[in-house]
Design a protein around this nucleic acid. Structure first.
Length: 518
DNA sequence: CTGGAAAGCGCC
DNA sequence: AAAGGGCGCTTTCCAG
């Protein structure tokens, strides 16, 4: 949160103006190469992609003072003739870095990916950021006051039940209250410090033993939503546009996914009733509708394609409910006879197992015994042997090559596998490698779809604007009169973006709030 | 005062 | 929390 609203205003103005300048610069002059994105393609795992670091790495140490670019201009600034040679040197370095990175992209077989995917995506992302999305601060303000009352009430009840006033937001203090003062039974330890956890799952289990747990869960949900969204979002509304302008990070995730920040609009609540109320504060501009288009089960479809598993391929070709289908196969019953609990477990397995979820975790999450979970996993891989073989193949390949590639050639390295590290670290890398082939391919497909949609919208002369990307979903703001045209165009663009051994299916919804279309 | 670690949790 | 993967943001807490 920015302490001084005036500072926030200046920051927002600067960001807008910079984006406009960059965009105009790109349109007028074009650009040779984005060094950050190029270096990301070469190694998406590296943490530092700033110009100075890249120049030191790719051009050697003789580079002229790359770090000074971050220093603000001094109040008594030096004469132009003193600065000019420095600026010229900086420009020279950047140009040489660009040439070097271009050569490296070629050598690594990544030039096409840069030229056709990640590079062209940059102006698309810039346009989405610049467009922004309308948020109704009055709705959030009303929600904030309501939530504050709810939190006050819950806090009082929690203090009463505890018999002591304490900071409910402090896991440390809460731990003492629950496990020392109230004598409740600790269920699990935290990852780092190995102290008793007070996380949501623990509180759910403690719900049967003490009424304080229920209040704590409600308090946590409310506090999270209020702090992260309800009270933060209004401060991020640009006073000029009345809209919220996120920043997309094309180098944000090592798998090739985008990330979003300030605010992160890829984690706006969708699940709970309170969360959906927050979504309802996002509204389309007057005379417009939201159109949401999401890829149905895209990662599992990609897994089917990559693995060539006949059962999975056939299921998607027949348009089956994939979780029901899995349950039917694993339990050996007709699809019609699959109970809700069976489908739920199959869904958990479909999402978890292929990335290496343990039987331990599956058992805990699905409230079944370890033995049942083990049998379930065995039955799964017995039926989906192509998936099993695929996972084994990727694990072998990444152990051999230290890297994996997505279907479209995006690479990610796993140096841990060729270093002396824990078994746990190695296993973690192997799971991440398998996941990267699927998640990364999905990210590639979504990027291509965004390019195609943007191109086709422009070609068709539509006023529909792409606002948000949330990994497997795109959100558009569509003039009411365009809604049918835009929906067809977007669906076509997304479904035809590439040809897999399974169909890509797009689900669409439109309406006058994000809540309706989610 | 600032920065980072940790816990916790929102999303796909 | 755990042998699911990928993120970013909040608060607390503590060290420098």
């Amino acid at each position: 949160m920015l302490a001084d609203p005036a500072v926030g205003k200046v920051a927002h103005d600067l960001k807008r103006h910079l984006e406009v300048l960059v965009r105009r610069g790109l349109e007028v002059a074009g650009w040779e190469i984005d060094t950050r994105v190029a270096a990301f393609l070469l190694n998406p795992g590296r943490p530092d992609l700033d110009l100075g670091t890249l120049e030191r790495e790719y051009l050697g140490r003789g580079v002229a003072d790359a770090t000074s670019t971050s220093k603000p201009v001094a109040v008594d600034r030096p004469a132009v003739e003193q600065v000019a040679p420095h600026a010229a040197g900086r420009a020279e370095s950047a140009l040489r870095l660009g040439e070097t990175l271009a050569a490296r992209l070629d050598e690594a077989g990544l030039a096409e990916l840069y030229r056709t995917m990640d590079g062209p995506l940059l102006p698309v992302l810039a346009r989405m950021e610049l467009t922004g999305i309308r948020v109704e601060p009055a709705m959030l303000g009303a929600m904030s006051r309501e939530m504050e009352e709810g939190l006050d009430r819950l806090r009082r009840e929690i203090h009463d039940l505890a018999g002591v006033a304490f900071n409910v937001d402090s896991p440390k203090q809460l731990r003492e209250v629950l496990f020392d003062r109230l004598g409740l039974e600790p269920k699990r330890k935290t990852a780092k410090s190995r102290v008793s956890s007070t996380d949501a799952r623990t509180l759910e289990e403690l719900g049967a033993e003490h009424p304080i747990a229920r209040r704590l869960l409600a308090y946590r949900e409310l506090a999270k939503l209020k702090g992260t969204y309800v009270d933060s979002l209004p401060q991020l509304i640009d006073p000029e546009t009345g809209r919220v302008h996120t920043t997309y990070h094309p180098t944000g995730a090592a798998t090739g996914r985008l990330s979003s920040s300030d605010p992160n609009l890829q984690n706006i609540p969708a699940r709970t009733a309170a969360g959906l109320r927050i979504r309802s504060a996002f509204v389309p501009d007057d005379g417009h509708l939201f159109l949401a288009s999401d890829y149905s089960q895209v990662e599992l479809r990609i897994l089917a394609h990559l693995s060539g598993d006949p059962e999975l391929l056939e299921a998607f070709r027949r348009g089956e409910d994939i979780h029901r289908h899995t349950a039917s196969l694993v339990y050996g019953v007709a699809p019609d006879l699959v109970a809700d609990a069976m489908r739920r477990r199959a869904k958990a397995v479909n999402f978890g197992i292929v990335y290496g979820m343990s039987e331990h975790r599956l058992a805990a999450e699905q409230e079944m015994s370890r033995g049942e979970a083990r049998k379930f996993i065995e039955a799964y891989f017995e039926r989906f042997q192509g998936v099993k073989a695929y996972i084994e193949r990727i694990r072998d390949e990444v152990r051999r090559d230290g890297a994996v590639r997505t279907l479209f050639g995006r690479v990610r390295y796993f140096p841990q596998l060729h270093q002396k590290v824990n078994r746990a670290v190695q296993e973690q890398a192997l799971r991440a490698a398998v996941n990267t082939t699927v998640q990364g391919t999905a990210a590639d497909i979504m990027k291509m779809a965004m390019l195609r949609v943007e191109h086709l919208l422009g070609e068709a002369g539509l006023a529909t604007r792409m606002l948000l990307q949330v990994h497997d979903e795109l959100l558009f703001e569509v003039p009411e009169a365009e809604i049918d045209t835009a929906a067809v165009l977007v669906r076509q663009a997304m479904e035809k973006v590439c040809s897999l051994d399974v169909p890509l299916v797009v689900d669409q919804k439109h309406g006058s709030s994000w809540r309706e279309v989610t």
